[in-house]
Design a protein around this nucleic acid. Structure first.
Length: 241
DNA sequence: GCGACAG
DNA sequence: ATCTTGTCGC
């Protein structure tokens, strides 16, 4: 029995490669984002993140699949493809999504929810990488970013669990939450990508937090994508040699 | 024109 | 993101 493949080969149809065309495409895709809670009882959740090799010429995406109740690692995958464009603030998904989709397609099952590194709708045109990923796959997604891209918010308490609203600086519309995931650490910026409401997004992130700053799906994907242990091991070898 | 700017 | 050692604080 095979599951339908929700992962398109290319997350942007015919794109001429220009930043202007990418921004126009974001406007269209953003209108397809659904911000109502519409996800099944969570059984399998995924985390995705991207890293680079060879000075940036190779894009490396990691995807991890976890049991939503026990957080046990059910599967993981790595995809390495040539990097096709430089990093441009606001156009991150056009650079990283191809590799992310390939990594997701290699997981043993389709997740009920995906935690993505980067923003969801907390983006200038409301289409951060998590929202873009959600629209092209049709799956529920949440963006977990380590830094602010756009929007403004009040100060928030230093204790774990503290959170404040993130709103568009110009229109005042809600676009996410700023959440302190651990005592006295830089807060995370949480915004829905697709099929999750703004209010539910931080609740789901909190559900999967353990002792670290990042929720477990994101933390594990981050480790794989950035080659945490490989680098640490290589470094110690050089030092002890 | 100036400042900001996910990964 | 990535390059990189030791160091300050909980």
């Amino acid at each position: 029995m095979s599951e339908p493949n929700p992962y398109p080969a290319v997350p942007f149809g015919d794109w001429d490669g220009s930043p202007a065309a990418a921004r126009a495409m974001q406007q269209t895709l953003a209108s397809q984002v659904r911000l109502q809670d519409d996800f099944p009882p969570l059984r399998l959740i995924a985390g995705v993140d991207v890293g680079f090799e060879e000075g940036g010429s190779i894009t490396r995406a990691a995807a991890v699949l976890l049991d939503a109740d026990t957080l046990e690692l059910v599967g993981s995958s790595l995809a390495r493809i040539p990097t096709n464009m430089p990093y441009i603030p606001g156009l991150l998904s056009f650079r990283e999504l191809p590799a992310v989709l390939q990594a997701l397609a290699e997981l043993p099952a389709v997740p009920d929810l995906i935690f993505s590194d980067g923003h969801g709708i907390a983006h200038p045109r409301r289409l951060g990488i998590a929202a873009h990923l959600g629209v092209v796959t049709g799956l529920p997604t949440i963006g977990v970013a380590k830094k602010l891209l756009t929007g403004e918010h009040d100060e928030l308490d230093l204790m774990r669990g503290a959170q404040v609203e993130l709103r568009d600086k110009k229109t005042g519309e809600m676009i996410g939450y700023v959440l302190r995931s651990k005592d006295k650490v830089r807060p995370l910026i949480i915004s829905p990508g697709n099929r999750v409401s703004i209010a539910t997004a931080p609740e789901l992130v909190k559900r999967y937090l353990t002792r670290y700053r990042l929720p477990e799906p994101t933390r594990l994907a981050d480790r794989l994508a950035s080659r945490r242990e490989e680098k640490a091991a290589a470094r110690r070898m050089a030092g002890n040699a």
